[in-house]
Nucleic acid binder design. Structure first.
Lengths: 258, 258
DNA sequence: TGCAAAAGTTAGGCTCTCCTAACTAATGTG
DNA sequence: CACATTAGTTAGGAGAGCCTAACTTTTGCA
């Protein structure tokens, strides 16, 4: 009368045989696999190279040998291509899965901030867990409730349902020339403390910042932040970590040595 | 520099030794454990007896031997008391955990229906997954957004944050005397098809129903459902499964043989 | 080019959760 | 009250994920 659920590749380790390799793109992935794919996507994206085992390990807070093992599995699932001792890079189907997770994560972040009053430094942790549990329908309803936003609360672009990610050219605030003025496009999520600090400087997506000075040797940046009332500039000195977490839009140079 | 997360009793099976038995009430439980506790609570509640191994197995769609093993573990965690071959019953701390899950589940259901336009026959499945991933903060924010509702969309009472569950006396529609009139208080969730059917009869929490007739041998009930415009009664014949899924408030007898 | 440091891998374990097969205890009925 | 039925248990395994210890490649640099 009951006929237990057929043992899918499933979460919570079932047994059974089913689902050998293939990557027809439809099988449900475990939360762990989803985390790996997302991490690998982001690493590939930010370095432009194949993702390194140790980098993945550090990002996921997992020991390197565990990563090695998982990479073999993901390669068998044709989610990425793997050559021992070289890094890994996602296949088309792996990238699709990663972008799906990115969308989920960012839609959830946007929803929590927009509809439930979450402060922006706490949406990341919550989304990190919900992204594995939410159905596609829920994600779509959240996106719809917000009017299908293009960015999450930190300014990161939200991939569309069909896996398109609009990449607007951005640069780190740290790279900006002294004297340049630019619009803050995004601030890296993940680090809640940093977000709280940055917010306390009134820096958030949309605010205009001008680099006033930069100390040598990757030293602190002095920036002028435009206040609410168009005027009311505020000057702050920020360290290089912060200057690398803040991304600005394709900058418009204003001054060039007077 | 990294110092990996300390191996808690944690989800995704880590290793390490930590956390022997104790049940200080604080350790995070795995999603599986949460499911067991919720199921056991509901079984105890509906039968008034210790929960039977096979009943738990059937409810969770898991083989009985798996349940036996888990029960031993849960007993070691002091979440329930277990005597071989007899059933199990939750300890205070087990019940607390179960009520917490019940609250989460029902708050999520209420939120999905109330704020995201989910149809009531689909909230259960979504909540079933989200209840393990949501933080307490999220649950509280959802409840607050709804004005701290007392019931979920199916009419089930929502436990308060401190674990209080208001139990209003209810009876199955199936038990109502012919001629009695009562307010529908709740309809069992879980079965989406049944919910869709019941909704098609305009039966939902709040509607008034009158038992017009009952066929013998647990046969179908003929009920009159009050329509929207106070009048506009509609008469339906429903099977015993439906009659047992629909719960009514402490009924007020109206007619008694003329 | 030679070799130590860094990066990555294999080997061997452990937990959690679930399964099937086979056995034992509790129960109800003639 | 014996015994078949039903409920529940132990035994033995499997797979996902993760870990540490020890080994192998790669790579950076003198």
């Amino acid at each position: 009368m009951s006929a237990r659920k057929v043992a899918r590749p499933a979460e919570r380790g079932h047994s059974g045989g089913g689902a050998r390799h293939g990557a027809a793109d439809g099988e449900p992935l475990t939360g762990s696999v989803e985390d790996y794919l997302k991490a690998i996507y982001e690493l590939e994206e930010m370095t432009g190279l194949a993702a390194a085992t140790n980098a993945i390990a550090e990002r996921l807070d997992i020991a390197p040998p565990s990563v090695s093992g998982m990479l073999r599995r993901l390669a068998a699932l044709e989610l990425l291509s793997y050559e021992r001792y070289k890094g890994v890079s996602l296949t088309a189907s792996g990238r699709r899965a990663a972008l799906r997770m990115l969308r989920r994560h960012r839609v959830i972040e946007a929803y929590l901030a927009g509809e439930l009053g979450y402060p922006w430094d706490r949406v990341h942790a919550e989304a990190e867990r919900l992204e594995h549990a939410a159905s596609d329908e829920l994600i779509d309803r959240m996106a719809a409730a917000l009017g299908h936003p293009a960015h999450d609360p930190h300014g990161a672009p939200i991939p569309t349902r069909d896996g398109t990610l609009v990449m607007v050219p951005r640069q780190m605030l740290a790279e900006q020339a002294v004297g340049s003025r630019a619009r803050v496009a995004a601030v890296g999520d993940e680090d809640g403390e940093l977000l709280r600090y940055v917010a306390s400087l009134a820096i958030k997506p949309g605010t205009m910042v001008t680099v006033v000075a930069r100390a040598p040797f990757d030293g602190p940046l002095t920036v002028e932040v435009a206040g609410k009332g168009t005027k009311a500039q505020r000057t702050h000195v920020v360290g290089s970590t912060v200057a690398r977490a803040v991304m600005v839009d394709a900058p418009v140079k204003r001054k060039r040595s007077t």
